[in-house]
């Protein structure tokens, strides 16, 4: 049974890798946030797969739904930020945001 679990973990690792690659290399703010969404898909896949393999799918389902609610809240906040940044800079390029030096 746990062979199956590793299959899902394998695929979600691919998703998370793709997301992190994009976060590290891309410059468009909206693209960056799409990357975050891809990472969160990987995480929710692991949650449901774990529940399905360990016979606690009901619990895993409620966790996944809660996670989706969190995601919606985050997306709303982040997109509001992006629109505000666009209003100020007239650009979605991460390089136009270099007033702070990290």
């Amino acid at each position: 049974m746990s062979n199956l679990w590793f299959l899902y973990v394998f695929f979600s690792a691919l998703l998370i890798f793709t997301g992190i690659y994009c976060l590290l290399t891309m410059r468009n703010l909206i693209k960056l946030f799409i990357a975050v969404e891809v990472i969160s898909k990987g995480v929710s896949l692991v949650i449901i797969a774990t529940g399905a393999v360990k016979n606690s799918i009901l619990l895993a389902q409620s966790l996944a739904i809660t996670y989706i609610v969190v995601e919606v809240s985050l997306v709303a906040t982040a997109l509001a930020l992006i629109i505000n940044i666009y209003k100020k800079n007239k650009s979605l390029d991460i390089r136009s945001l270099s007033k702070l030096k990290g």
Binding site: I16, I20, L23, L29, L32, V36, I39, S40, G42, V43, V46, I47, Y67, L74, T77, A78, L81, I82, N84, I85, K88, N89, L97, K99, L100, G102
Partner: peptide, 23 residues
Amino acid sequence: PEELEASFKYLMLSVVASAFVLL
């Protein structure tokens, strides 16, 4: 503009952090 930029940076890193915690 500075506040927005700082907040966006913070959000991105923090979301990745909590994704790993949840994982």
